[in-house]
Amino acid sequence: MSEHKYLTPLHALSALFITACLVAAPLFTATPAKAHKLKTFATAIGAKVSGYAYFVPGGRAQNARVTITREDGSQAATLQTNEQGEFDFTADQRSRLTIHIDAGDGHEASTIIAAVDLPPTLPSANAQNAAAPVVIPTPPMESAANITPDLQQQIETALARQLRPLREQMDAWQEQIWLHDILGGLGYIIGLAGLAYALTSAKGRKTSSNIKQTKS
C-alpha cells in the first residue's frame, strides 16, 4: 500500500541521470568549469604596477573601481579599469600595496604587491627598515663588483617580465575546479543523508519500543 510513497528505482534513476547531465555539461562547454567570481591579477615591473580584473569564468571586468592602498593605510590611487579590464599605476613609495577591485554588483577582489617587488630606488615608507636589505647582497661576491645598481635594476625588471606569465598561469590554476572536488562534495551529501537516516531511525526505534511497552 505505502510502496508508492518510497523512491522507486525509476525515480532514483531519472534523478541520477539529471545529476549526471549536470556534472557532464561543464566538461563539454568551451570555457573551463568555473562559476561566477571576480579575481584580479597584478605584478610590478620596475615601479610600474600593472594588472587586470577578470571574472571566472568570463571575460575582463570593465569599468570596475580600483583602489590602491599603501601599507600605512593611506590611499595611493583610485582608478577605473579600461575596456580590457586593465589598470596600471606607478608606485611612488616602496611600500606594500593592496589593490582592491569593486565591480559594483557585489563582486569584489583584492591582491597584494609586496614591497620587495618594487625597486629599491623608490623612497621607502619606513626608511631605516628598508635600507638594510638593499645594501647586504653587494659586498660578499667578488663578481658583484661588476654589477652596478643600474644593471641590477635591469636584471630585476627583465626577471619580473619573464615571471609574469608564470604567475598568471598559477593564478588561473588556483581557480581550476577538479573532478575530485565535485566527487568529494557529492560524497559529503551522501554521507549526510546516511547520517540523517541513522538519526531518524534511532528516533523511530525509541518510539516503537515505547509503543511496545505501553501495549504490553
Binding site: L22, F55, G58, I189, T200
Partner: peptide
C-alpha cells in the same frame, strides 16, 4: 525519513548546478 533521498539528490543537484554556466557579456 522518506524524504531524505529526495533531499540529498536535490542538494547534490544544487551543489553541481553552479558549475553549469552561460556567458553573458563580460561575465557569466
Amino acid at each position: 525519513p522518506v524524504a531524505i533521498p529526495r533531499t540529498a539528490v536535490l542538494s547534490a543537484t544544487f551543489f553541481v548546478a553552479a558549475l553549469v554556466h552561460f556567458p553573458v557579456g563580460p561575465t557569466s
